[in-house]
């Protein structure tokens, strides 16, 4: 006779536990794989040049030193480049908001001729990579002799096509009646924008600003092609040229520079990891 086999409950349970342990082990391994390069960067930045050249390398600094950080500020004057980066970052983010909000409001709540075409143009612009436009933009600024200012790194970046799209989506969800009643109260359009539209889209706006701040701070390609002199270069370009120091490749200094570059982003991530992950994932979903 065919007999129904009772599953061995105990065996199943053991199997489950073993499986969970293995799975957790691999998950830990994944964490290490993704965190280790950062830890290695930090560890190297506190080593002496001599120790960094040892082979096989030491995992943790034996002679803990902050020399690399000191020489970053005393020799390279990293603070100048950080200042450039901050000026660019703040100007780009604020000007983006200034340009994005009215445009998104008009695209969301007004009907006007050519609206479809113009909005289509914004969407196409979002798809055009800067790797295609940089030569012409460079020539433009070169002709205007503005390459020794920060403008080439600010002006071309202040129209955030993706931001206009996101914000418009958000504005469209705000009920028309709310605007109408405000208009009956003789509120001007500016007042409506500032008192109704913006407060109701705060979260989206913060998301957009967060993304563009991280993007601008990290940007490498655009400042590389838009600057000729050190006086206008941002932190990324300064760190890249740490490789050309007289002493050859001084890994502790290079890694220290990168620690400083990554630190603000990491702090931001630990403070608002949920928000940032949501923001980035949103960009993918939409």
């Amino acid at each position: 006779m065919y007999e129904y086999k009772k599953p061995n409950k105990k065996l199943l349970k053991v199997k489950k536990i073993v499986f969970a342990v293995i799975s957790t082990f691999f998950k830990l391994l994944v964490c290490v794989i993704f965190a280790f390069p950062f830890l290695w960067m930090i560890s190297t930045s506190f080593k002496t040049l001599y120790e960094s050249l040892l082979y096989p390398p030491t995992l943790l600094p034996q002679n803990f030193t902050v020399d690399a950080y000191i020489s970053l500020f005393e020799q390279v004057h990293l603070e100048r480049y950080i200042l450039n980066s901050l000026i660019i970052l703040v100007s780009v983010t604020l000007l983006q908001v200034l340009i994005m909000v009215p445009a998104a409001y008009a695209f969301a709540k007004y009907n006007f001729k050519m609206k479809g075409v113009l909005f289509g143009a914004v969407m196409v612009a979002f798809m055009v990579p800067t790797q295609i436009t940089f030569v012409s933009v460079f020539q433009m600024f070169s002709k205007m002799q503005l390459l020794d200012t920060l403008l080439p790194q600010i002006i071309p970046c202040i129209c955030n096509a993706f931001g206009i799209f996101l914000l418009r989506q958000n504005f469209m969800q705000i009920p028309e009646e709310l605007l109408e009643s405000a208009r009956l109260d003789e509120a001007g359009e500016l007042k409506i924008m500032l008192k109704i539209m913006l407060p109701m889209s705060k979260s989206t706006l913060v998301t957009i600003m967060l993304l563009s701040m991280i993007g601008t701070w990290n940007s490498y390609f655009w400042p590389l092609v838009m600057t000729l002199h050190d006086s206008v270069r941002p932190i990324t370009i300064a760190i890249q040229s740490l490789r050309n120091l007289e002493g050859g490749l001084e890994w502790p200094i290079i890694m220290a520079g990168n620690v400083i570059l990554v630190l603000p982003v990491l702090i931001l991530f630990f403070l608002a990891s949920k928000k940032i992950i949501e923001a980035m994932a949103y960009r993918g979903v939409k």
């Binding site: 964490c31 960067m41 490498y220 990324t236």
Partner: peptide, 28 residues
């Protein structure tokens, strides 16, 4: 919560500058 932590670790490199990632790996 384990998965949430793993996701955060995996996500970390994405928000860091390619410059940093490239230089650290060049060193590795």
């Amino acid at each position: 919560w384990v998965n949430a932590i793993v996701q955060r670790f995996m996500f970390l490199p994405h928000i860091c500058a390619m410059l940093t990632v490239a230089m650290v790996f060049q060193w590795l």
